[in-house]
Write a protein that binds this DNA or RNA. Structure first.
Lengths: 208, 208
DNA sequence: AATTCCAGAGAACAATCGTTAACTGATGTC
DNA sequence: GACATCAGTTAACGATTGTTCTCTGGAATT
Protein backbone atom coordinates (compact mmCIF):
# COMPACT_ATOMS: atom_id res chain seq x y z
CA UNK A 1 0.00 0.00 0.00
CA UNK A 2 2.70 2.48 -0.97
CA UNK A 3 1.75 4.60 -3.99
CA UNK A 4 -1.42 6.66 -4.03
CA UNK A 5 -4.36 5.43 -6.00
CA UNK A 6 -3.92 7.93 -8.81
CA UNK A 7 -5.59 11.28 -9.39
CA UNK A 8 -8.17 9.74 -11.63
CA UNK A 9 -9.49 7.05 -9.28
CA UNK A 10 -9.32 9.46 -6.35
CA UNK A 11 -11.53 11.98 -8.11
CA UNK A 12 -13.95 9.25 -9.06
CA UNK A 13 -14.23 8.05 -5.48
CA UNK A 14 -14.82 11.63 -4.44
CA UNK A 15 -17.85 12.15 -6.67
CA UNK A 16 -19.12 8.71 -5.80
CA UNK A 17 -19.03 9.61 -2.14
CA UNK A 18 -20.69 12.93 -2.92
CA UNK A 19 -23.52 11.06 -4.63
CA UNK A 20 -23.94 8.79 -1.61
CA UNK A 21 -23.93 11.72 0.80
CA UNK A 22 -26.42 13.71 -1.23
CA UNK A 23 -28.71 10.70 -1.53
CA UNK A 24 -28.60 10.16 2.21
CA UNK A 25 -29.73 13.73 2.81
CA UNK A 26 -32.56 13.45 0.31
CA UNK A 27 -33.63 10.14 1.82
CA UNK A 28 -34.35 11.78 5.14
CA UNK A 29 -37.68 12.91 3.78
CA UNK A 30 -38.55 10.27 1.21
CA UNK A 31 -38.00 6.60 0.40
CA UNK A 32 -35.51 5.08 -1.97
CA UNK A 33 -38.17 3.99 -4.44
CA UNK A 34 -39.06 7.63 -5.06
CA UNK A 35 -35.49 8.89 -5.23
CA UNK A 36 -34.65 10.24 -8.69
CA UNK A 37 -31.33 10.04 -10.44
CA UNK A 38 -31.56 13.63 -11.60
CA UNK A 39 -32.49 14.69 -8.10
CA UNK A 40 -29.30 13.23 -6.68
CA UNK A 41 -26.98 14.54 -9.39
CA UNK A 42 -28.55 18.00 -9.15
CA UNK A 43 -27.80 18.08 -5.42
CA UNK A 44 -24.17 17.20 -6.10
CA UNK A 45 -23.83 19.65 -8.98
CA UNK A 46 -23.00 17.13 -11.63
CA UNK A 47 -24.59 16.06 -14.91
CA UNK A 48 -27.37 13.43 -14.68
CA UNK A 49 -25.45 11.06 -16.89
CA UNK A 50 -22.49 11.05 -14.52
CA UNK A 51 -24.58 8.92 -12.18
CA UNK A 52 -24.26 5.90 -14.46
CA UNK A 53 -20.47 5.94 -14.12
CA UNK A 54 -20.93 4.85 -10.51
CA UNK A 55 -24.26 3.07 -10.14
CA UNK A 56 -26.49 1.09 -12.44
CA UNK A 57 -29.62 2.43 -10.74
CA UNK A 58 -30.87 3.98 -7.52
CA UNK A 59 -31.36 0.45 -6.18
CA UNK A 60 -27.65 -0.09 -6.74
CA UNK A 61 -26.88 3.08 -4.82
CA UNK A 62 -29.14 1.85 -2.03
CA UNK A 63 -27.13 -1.33 -1.67
CA UNK A 64 -23.95 0.72 -1.40
CA UNK A 65 -25.61 2.77 1.36
CA UNK A 66 -26.48 -0.42 3.24
CA UNK A 67 -22.83 -1.46 3.22
CA UNK A 68 -21.76 1.98 4.35
CA UNK A 69 -24.32 2.16 7.14
CA UNK A 70 -23.95 -1.34 8.57
CA UNK A 71 -20.35 -2.13 7.73
CA UNK A 72 -18.96 0.25 10.33
CA UNK A 73 -21.09 -1.31 13.06
CA UNK A 74 -19.62 -4.81 13.04
CA UNK A 75 -16.35 -3.91 14.82
CA UNK A 76 -18.26 -1.86 17.40
CA UNK A 77 -20.56 -4.73 18.32
CA UNK A 78 -17.75 -7.26 18.32
CA UNK A 79 -15.57 -5.26 20.70
CA UNK A 80 -18.52 -4.53 22.97
CA UNK A 81 -19.34 -8.20 23.24
CA UNK A 82 -15.71 -9.06 23.90
CA UNK A 83 -14.92 -6.57 26.61
CA UNK A 84 -17.78 -7.32 28.98
CA UNK A 85 -18.29 -10.28 31.26
CA UNK A 86 -21.12 -8.94 33.36
CA UNK A 87 -24.34 -9.18 31.37
CA UNK A 88 -26.27 -6.46 33.15
CA UNK A 89 -23.48 -3.98 32.69
CA UNK A 90 -23.36 -4.96 29.05
CA UNK A 91 -27.03 -4.03 28.65
CA UNK A 92 -26.43 -0.50 29.84
CA UNK A 93 -23.42 -0.07 27.57
CA UNK A 94 -25.24 -1.60 24.61
CA UNK A 95 -28.01 0.99 24.84
CA UNK A 96 -25.43 3.73 25.22
CA UNK A 97 -23.58 2.49 22.16
CA UNK A 98 -26.77 2.47 20.11
CA UNK A 99 -27.72 5.90 21.35
CA UNK A 100 -24.31 7.33 20.51
CA UNK A 101 -24.38 5.78 17.07
CA UNK A 102 -27.80 7.27 16.40
CA UNK A 103 -26.55 10.68 17.45
CA UNK A 104 -23.46 10.43 15.28
CA UNK A 105 -25.10 9.00 12.16
CA UNK A 106 -28.81 9.79 12.31
CA UNK A 107 -29.40 9.69 8.57
CA UNK A 108 -27.73 6.32 8.24
CA UNK A 109 -29.98 4.87 10.93
CA UNK A 110 -33.04 6.50 9.43
CA UNK A 111 -32.17 5.03 6.06
CA UNK A 112 -31.82 1.55 7.54
CA UNK A 113 -35.13 1.74 9.38
CA UNK A 114 -36.88 3.07 6.28
CA UNK A 115 -35.54 0.61 3.74
CA UNK A 116 -35.52 -2.50 5.89
CA UNK A 117 -39.06 -3.17 4.72
CA UNK A 118 -38.98 -0.62 1.90
CA UNK A 119 -40.10 -0.90 -1.69
CA UNK A 120 -36.80 -1.97 -3.24
CA UNK A 121 -36.23 -5.70 -3.05
CA UNK A 122 -32.47 -5.87 -3.67
CA UNK A 123 -31.89 -3.37 -0.88
CA UNK A 124 -34.07 -5.35 1.50
CA UNK A 125 -32.09 -8.45 0.60
CA UNK A 126 -28.75 -6.76 1.23
CA UNK A 127 -29.91 -5.58 4.65
CA UNK A 128 -31.31 -8.97 5.58
CA UNK A 129 -27.95 -10.56 4.82
CA UNK A 130 -26.09 -8.05 6.95
CA UNK A 131 -28.50 -8.36 9.88
CA UNK A 132 -28.18 -12.14 9.73
CA UNK A 133 -24.44 -11.65 10.05
CA UNK A 134 -25.04 -9.52 13.15
CA UNK A 135 -27.25 -12.18 14.72
CA UNK A 136 -24.56 -14.76 14.00
CA UNK A 137 -21.87 -12.59 15.58
CA UNK A 138 -23.98 -11.98 18.65
CA UNK A 139 -24.67 -15.69 18.91
CA UNK A 140 -20.94 -16.41 18.93
CA UNK A 141 -20.50 -13.70 21.54
CA UNK A 142 -23.25 -15.07 23.74
CA UNK A 143 -21.92 -18.60 23.43
CA UNK A 144 -18.75 -17.67 25.31
CA UNK A 145 -20.69 -16.37 28.30
CA UNK A 146 -21.23 -18.49 31.38
CA UNK A 147 -25.00 -17.96 31.23
CA UNK A 148 -25.12 -19.94 27.99
CA UNK A 149 -24.06 -23.24 29.51
CA UNK A 150 -26.42 -25.99 28.47
CA UNK A 151 -28.04 -23.95 25.69
CA UNK A 152 -28.76 -25.50 22.32
CA UNK A 153 -27.38 -23.79 19.25
CA UNK A 154 -30.81 -22.97 17.78
CA UNK A 155 -32.03 -21.51 21.06
CA UNK A 156 -28.94 -19.32 21.19
CA UNK A 157 -29.63 -18.05 17.68
CA UNK A 158 -33.25 -17.42 18.63
CA UNK A 159 -32.04 -15.32 21.54
CA UNK A 160 -29.49 -13.35 19.52
CA UNK A 161 -32.14 -12.56 16.95
CA UNK A 162 -34.30 -11.21 19.74
CA UNK A 163 -31.43 -9.04 20.93
CA UNK A 164 -30.57 -7.78 17.45
CA UNK A 165 -34.15 -7.01 16.57
CA UNK A 166 -34.57 -5.15 19.82
CA UNK A 167 -31.45 -3.12 19.07
CA UNK A 168 -32.74 -2.22 15.62
CA UNK A 169 -36.11 -1.30 17.10
CA UNK A 170 -34.49 0.90 19.74
CA UNK A 171 -32.39 2.67 17.14
CA UNK A 172 -35.48 3.30 15.01
CA UNK A 173 -37.34 4.77 17.94
CA UNK A 174 -34.42 6.95 19.00
CA UNK A 175 -33.91 8.43 15.57
CA UNK A 176 -37.54 9.48 15.35
CA UNK A 177 -37.80 10.60 18.96
CA UNK A 178 -38.96 14.10 19.83
CA UNK A 179 -36.03 16.07 21.24
CA UNK A 180 -35.96 15.63 25.01
CA UNK A 181 -37.68 12.26 25.05
CA UNK A 182 -34.56 10.25 24.26
CA UNK A 183 -33.64 9.51 27.87
CA UNK A 184 -37.06 8.07 28.65
CA UNK A 185 -36.81 5.88 25.55
CA UNK A 186 -33.35 4.70 26.54
CA UNK A 187 -34.58 3.83 30.00
CA UNK A 188 -37.48 1.82 28.58
CA UNK A 189 -35.12 0.04 26.19
CA UNK A 190 -32.81 -0.87 29.05
CA UNK A 191 -35.65 -2.29 31.11
CA UNK A 192 -36.88 -4.28 28.13
CA UNK A 193 -33.43 -5.75 27.60
CA UNK A 194 -33.42 -6.61 31.28
CA UNK A 195 -36.69 -8.50 30.89
CA UNK A 196 -35.14 -10.47 28.07
CA UNK A 197 -32.02 -11.06 30.13
CA UNK A 198 -34.08 -12.35 33.06
CA UNK A 199 -35.98 -14.65 30.75
CA UNK A 200 -32.70 -15.94 29.46
CA UNK A 201 -31.49 -16.63 33.00
CA UNK A 202 -34.52 -18.82 33.71
CA UNK A 203 -34.81 -20.48 30.32
CA UNK A 204 -33.32 -23.77 31.46
CA UNK A 205 -35.50 -23.86 34.60
CA UNK A 206 -38.51 -23.88 32.35
CA UNK A 207 -37.18 -26.31 29.82
CA UNK A 208 -35.79 -28.80 32.29
CA UNK B 1 -80.27 2.27 10.46
CA UNK B 2 -83.35 1.77 8.28
CA UNK B 3 -83.08 3.42 4.86
CA UNK B 4 -80.11 2.78 2.59
CA UNK B 5 -77.44 5.43 2.28
CA UNK B 6 -78.55 6.54 -1.17
CA UNK B 7 -77.32 5.50 -4.56
CA UNK B 8 -75.05 8.48 -4.76
CA UNK B 9 -73.06 7.97 -1.55
CA UNK B 10 -72.95 4.24 -2.16
CA UNK B 11 -71.34 4.69 -5.55
CA UNK B 12 -68.86 7.16 -4.08
CA UNK B 13 -67.86 4.72 -1.35
CA UNK B 14 -67.43 2.08 -4.01
CA UNK B 15 -64.90 4.03 -6.06
CA UNK B 16 -63.19 5.17 -2.88
CA UNK B 17 -62.74 1.56 -1.87
CA UNK B 18 -61.55 0.71 -5.37
CA UNK B 19 -58.89 3.40 -5.07
CA UNK B 20 -57.76 2.02 -1.71
CA UNK B 21 -57.63 -1.53 -3.05
CA UNK B 22 -55.71 -0.54 -6.17
CA UNK B 23 -53.25 1.46 -4.10
CA UNK B 24 -52.68 -1.48 -1.80
CA UNK B 25 -51.80 -3.70 -4.75
CA UNK B 26 -49.42 -1.12 -6.20
CA UNK B 27 -47.80 -0.64 -2.79
CA UNK B 28 -46.72 -4.25 -2.70
CA UNK B 29 -43.78 -3.32 -4.89
CA UNK B 30 -43.10 0.29 -4.01
CA UNK B 31 -43.41 2.80 -1.18
CA UNK B 32 -46.12 5.35 -0.63
CA UNK B 33 -43.81 8.26 -1.34
CA UNK B 34 -43.39 7.04 -4.91
CA UNK B 35 -47.05 6.22 -5.46
CA UNK B 36 -48.57 8.44 -8.16
CA UNK B 37 -52.13 9.70 -8.28
CA UNK B 38 -52.43 8.91 -11.97
CA UNK B 39 -51.00 5.47 -11.34
CA UNK B 40 -53.78 4.66 -8.89
CA UNK B 41 -56.62 6.08 -10.94
CA UNK B 42 -55.36 4.29 -14.04
CA UNK B 43 -55.47 0.98 -12.18
CA UNK B 44 -59.06 1.63 -11.15
CA UNK B 45 -60.10 2.81 -14.60
CA UNK B 46 -61.14 6.29 -13.60
CA UNK B 47 -60.03 9.79 -14.52
CA UNK B 48 -57.02 11.19 -12.61
CA UNK B 49 -59.06 14.10 -11.31
CA UNK B 50 -61.59 11.78 -9.69
CA UNK B 51 -58.96 11.06 -7.09
CA UNK B 52 -59.38 14.51 -5.56
CA UNK B 53 -63.06 13.80 -4.79
CA UNK B 54 -61.86 11.33 -2.18
CA UNK B 55 -58.37 12.24 -1.03
CA UNK B 56 -56.37 15.45 -0.84
CA UNK B 57 -53.14 13.60 -1.68
CA UNK B 58 -51.51 10.20 -1.63
CA UNK B 59 -50.47 10.89 1.96
CA UNK B 60 -54.14 11.28 2.77
CA UNK B 61 -54.87 7.95 1.13
CA UNK B 62 -52.07 6.43 3.16
CA UNK B 63 -53.70 7.53 6.39
CA UNK B 64 -56.96 5.93 5.30
CA UNK B 65 -55.06 2.71 4.62
CA UNK B 66 -53.61 2.80 8.12
CA UNK B 67 -57.09 2.99 9.61
CA UNK B 68 -58.27 0.18 7.39
CA UNK B 69 -55.32 -2.06 8.19
CA UNK B 70 -55.11 -1.54 11.93
CA UNK B 71 -58.70 -0.76 12.81
CA UNK B 72 -59.89 -4.31 12.27
CA UNK B 73 -57.19 -5.65 14.59
CA UNK B 74 -58.31 -3.99 17.79
CA UNK B 75 -61.30 -6.26 18.44
CA UNK B 76 -59.21 -9.35 17.65
CA UNK B 77 -56.53 -8.45 20.17
CA UNK B 78 -59.05 -7.40 22.80
CA UNK B 79 -60.97 -10.66 22.63
CA UNK B 80 -57.78 -12.71 22.64
CA UNK B 81 -56.59 -10.96 25.78
CA UNK B 82 -59.95 -11.43 27.44
CA UNK B 83 -60.49 -15.10 26.79
CA UNK B 84 -57.24 -16.46 28.15
CA UNK B 85 -56.08 -16.85 31.71
CA UNK B 86 -53.09 -19.06 31.11
CA UNK B 87 -50.25 -16.92 29.80
CA UNK B 88 -48.30 -19.63 28.04
CA UNK B 89 -51.35 -20.80 26.18
CA UNK B 90 -51.98 -17.18 25.22
CA UNK B 91 -48.55 -16.96 23.63
CA UNK B 92 -49.27 -19.85 21.29
CA UNK B 93 -52.62 -18.43 20.30
CA UNK B 94 -51.20 -14.94 19.84
CA UNK B 95 -48.67 -16.20 17.30
CA UNK B 96 -51.40 -18.17 15.56
CA UNK B 97 -53.60 -15.10 15.41
CA UNK B 98 -50.81 -13.03 13.89
CA UNK B 99 -49.99 -15.77 11.41
CA UNK B 100 -53.62 -16.10 10.34
CA UNK B 101 -53.96 -12.36 9.95
CA UNK B 102 -50.85 -12.22 7.79
CA UNK B 103 -52.22 -14.99 5.60
CA UNK B 104 -55.60 -13.30 5.24
CA UNK B 105 -54.36 -9.75 4.65
CA UNK B 106 -50.77 -9.92 3.45
CA UNK B 107 -50.79 -6.62 1.59
CA UNK B 108 -52.15 -4.78 4.61
CA UNK B 109 -49.39 -6.14 6.78
CA UNK B 110 -46.79 -5.38 4.14
CA UNK B 111 -48.06 -1.84 3.89
CA UNK B 112 -47.82 -1.36 7.65
CA UNK B 113 -44.29 -2.72 7.85
CA UNK B 114 -43.21 -0.58 4.91
CA UNK B 115 -44.70 2.72 5.98
CA UNK B 116 -44.08 2.48 9.70
CA UNK B 117 -40.74 4.16 9.11
CA UNK B 118 -41.52 5.26 5.57
CA UNK B 119 -40.98 8.57 3.87
CA UNK B 120 -44.39 10.12 4.55
CA UNK B 121 -44.55 11.79 7.94
CA UNK B 122 -48.35 12.05 8.40
CA UNK B 123 -48.69 8.34 7.72
CA UNK B 124 -45.97 7.54 10.22
CA UNK B 125 -47.77 9.68 12.77
CA UNK B 126 -51.10 7.96 12.18
CA UNK B 127 -49.53 4.56 12.65
CA UNK B 128 -47.66 5.62 15.78
CA UNK B 129 -50.94 6.76 17.31
CA UNK B 130 -52.66 3.48 16.52
CA UNK B 131 -49.77 1.37 17.82
CA UNK B 132 -49.75 3.39 21.02
CA UNK B 133 -53.43 2.51 21.39
CA UNK B 134 -52.52 -1.16 20.99
CA UNK B 135 -49.85 -0.93 23.68
CA UNK B 136 -52.36 0.75 25.96
CA UNK B 137 -54.95 -1.94 25.35
CA UNK B 138 -52.42 -4.69 25.97
CA UNK B 139 -51.36 -2.95 29.17
CA UNK B 140 -54.94 -2.96 30.42
CA UNK B 141 -55.21 -6.62 29.45
CA UNK B 142 -51.99 -7.52 31.26
CA UNK B 143 -53.02 -5.58 34.34
CA UNK B 144 -55.89 -7.96 35.00
CA UNK B 145 -53.61 -10.99 35.04
CA UNK B 146 -52.39 -12.49 38.29
CA UNK B 147 -48.77 -12.26 37.13
CA UNK B 148 -48.99 -8.48 37.19
CA UNK B 149 -49.46 -8.14 40.95
CA UNK B 150 -47.05 -5.64 42.38
CA UNK B 151 -46.13 -4.16 39.00
CA UNK B 152 -45.82 -0.42 38.52
CA UNK B 153 -47.85 1.20 35.78
CA UNK B 154 -44.81 2.34 33.80
CA UNK B 155 -43.23 -1.09 33.98
CA UNK B 156 -46.43 -2.61 32.68
CA UNK B 157 -46.46 -0.19 29.76
CA UNK B 158 -42.82 -0.99 29.09
CA UNK B 159 -43.72 -4.67 28.93
CA UNK B 160 -46.76 -4.20 26.68
CA UNK B 161 -44.66 -2.16 24.27
CA UNK B 162 -42.18 -5.03 24.15
CA UNK B 163 -45.02 -7.43 23.36
CA UNK B 164 -46.56 -5.17 20.72
CA UNK B 165 -43.26 -4.47 19.03
CA UNK B 166 -42.48 -8.16 18.96
CA UNK B 167 -45.86 -8.85 17.39
CA UNK B 168 -45.25 -6.26 14.70
CA UNK B 169 -41.80 -7.67 14.09
CA UNK B 170 -43.14 -11.19 13.78
CA UNK B 171 -45.80 -10.08 11.34
CA UNK B 172 -43.18 -8.28 9.24
CA UNK B 173 -41.02 -11.36 9.11
CA UNK B 174 -43.91 -13.66 8.26
CA UNK B 175 -45.10 -11.52 5.37
CA UNK B 176 -41.66 -11.53 3.78
CA UNK B 177 -40.93 -15.17 4.55
CA UNK B 178 -40.00 -17.59 1.80
CA UNK B 179 -42.81 -20.09 1.29
CA UNK B 180 -42.22 -23.08 3.55
CA UNK B 181 -40.22 -21.24 6.17
CA UNK B 182 -43.22 -19.84 8.01
CA UNK B 183 -43.45 -22.62 10.57
CA UNK B 184 -39.84 -22.23 11.63
CA UNK B 185 -40.40 -18.48 12.01
CA UNK B 186 -43.51 -19.05 14.08
CA UNK B 187 -41.64 -21.44 16.33
CA UNK B 188 -38.85 -18.93 16.86
CA UNK B 189 -41.39 -16.20 17.60
CA UNK B 190 -43.10 -18.41 20.17
CA UNK B 191 -39.85 -19.16 21.92
CA UNK B 192 -38.94 -15.48 21.94
CA UNK B 193 -42.26 -14.61 23.51
CA UNK B 194 -41.59 -17.31 26.07
CA UNK B 195 -38.26 -15.71 26.95
CA UNK B 196 -40.07 -12.43 27.51
CA UNK B 197 -42.71 -14.19 29.53
CA UNK B 198 -40.09 -15.83 31.74
CA UNK B 199 -38.39 -12.50 32.25
CA UNK B 200 -41.71 -11.06 33.27
CA UNK B 201 -42.24 -13.84 35.78
CA UNK B 202 -38.93 -13.03 37.50
CA UNK B 203 -39.05 -9.26 37.20
CA UNK B 204 -40.02 -8.68 40.82
CA UNK B 205 -37.33 -11.09 42.09
CA UNK B 206 -34.78 -8.88 40.49
CA UNK B 207 -36.29 -5.55 41.52
CA UNK B 208 -37.00 -6.51 45.10
C1' DA C 1 5.59 12.65 -27.52
C1' DA C 2 1.98 9.90 -29.35
C1' DT C 3 -1.85 7.28 -28.08
C1' DT C 4 -5.49 5.20 -25.30
C1' DC C 5 -8.75 5.56 -21.73
C1' DC C 6 -12.67 7.25 -19.35
C1' DA C 7 -15.21 10.53 -15.89
C1' DG C 8 -18.15 13.78 -16.80
C1' DA C 9 -20.82 17.29 -19.99
C1' DG C 10 -24.36 18.43 -23.20
C1' DA C 11 -28.37 17.87 -25.97
C1' DA C 12 -32.34 15.61 -27.08
C1' DC C 13 -36.24 11.89 -26.71
C1' DA C 14 -40.70 10.31 -25.37
C1' DA C 15 -43.17 9.58 -21.24
C1' DT C 16 -45.04 10.70 -17.01
C1' DC C 17 -46.27 13.60 -13.52
C1' DG C 18 -49.60 16.83 -10.28
C1' DT C 19 -52.91 20.23 -10.73
C1' DT C 20 -56.19 23.71 -12.85
C1' DA C 21 -60.40 24.76 -15.12
C1' DA C 22 -64.61 24.12 -17.32
C1' DC C 23 -68.03 20.47 -18.51
C1' DT C 24 -71.65 16.67 -18.21
C1' DG C 25 -75.23 14.03 -16.51
C1' DA C 26 -77.35 11.24 -13.12
C1' DT C 27 -79.03 11.74 -8.26
C1' DG C 28 -81.23 14.15 -4.55
C1' DT C 29 -84.42 17.95 -3.05
C1' DC C 30 -88.43 20.64 -2.94
C1' DG D 1 -91.47 18.47 -12.76
C1' DA D 2 -88.08 22.30 -12.02
C1' DC D 3 -83.84 23.07 -9.78
C1' DA D 4 -79.56 22.23 -7.18
C1' DT D 5 -75.80 19.10 -6.04
C1' DC D 6 -71.73 16.78 -7.01
C1' DA D 7 -69.03 12.31 -8.61
C1' DG D 8 -66.59 11.77 -12.46
C1' DT D 9 -64.85 13.43 -17.38
C1' DT D 10 -62.16 15.97 -20.69
C1' DA D 11 -58.51 18.93 -22.04
C1' DA D 12 -54.58 21.29 -21.27
C1' DC D 13 -50.45 23.39 -18.58
C1' DG D 14 -45.62 23.40 -17.48
C1' DA D 15 -42.35 20.64 -15.05
C1' DT D 16 -39.76 16.60 -14.30
C1' DT D 17 -38.39 12.08 -15.25
C1' DG D 18 -34.90 7.95 -17.03
C1' DT D 19 -32.11 6.96 -20.73
C1' DT D 20 -29.61 7.32 -25.31
C1' DC D 21 -25.93 9.06 -28.04
C1' DT D 22 -22.19 12.04 -29.06
C1' DC D 23 -18.53 14.76 -27.53
C1' DT D 24 -14.54 16.65 -24.65
C1' DG D 25 -10.42 17.14 -22.18
C1' DG D 26 -7.25 15.69 -18.86
C1' DA D 27 -5.04 11.47 -16.79
C1' DA D 28 -2.80 7.09 -17.69
C1' DT D 29 -0.05 4.18 -20.71
C1' DT D 30 3.44 3.18 -23.89
Amino acid sequence: MSHTVGVRQAQKQKTRQALLDAALVLLEEQSLSSLGIREVTRAVGVAPTAFYRHFRSTADLGIALVEEALGSLHPLIESLLAEHDDSEQLIAHMVDLISAHVQDHPSHVRFLARERHGGVQPVRAAMATQLQRFAEEVRVGLATQAESRGWGEDDLLMLSRLYVDHMVMTASELVEAEPGTEEALKDTARRQMLVIHLGRAHWLDHRG
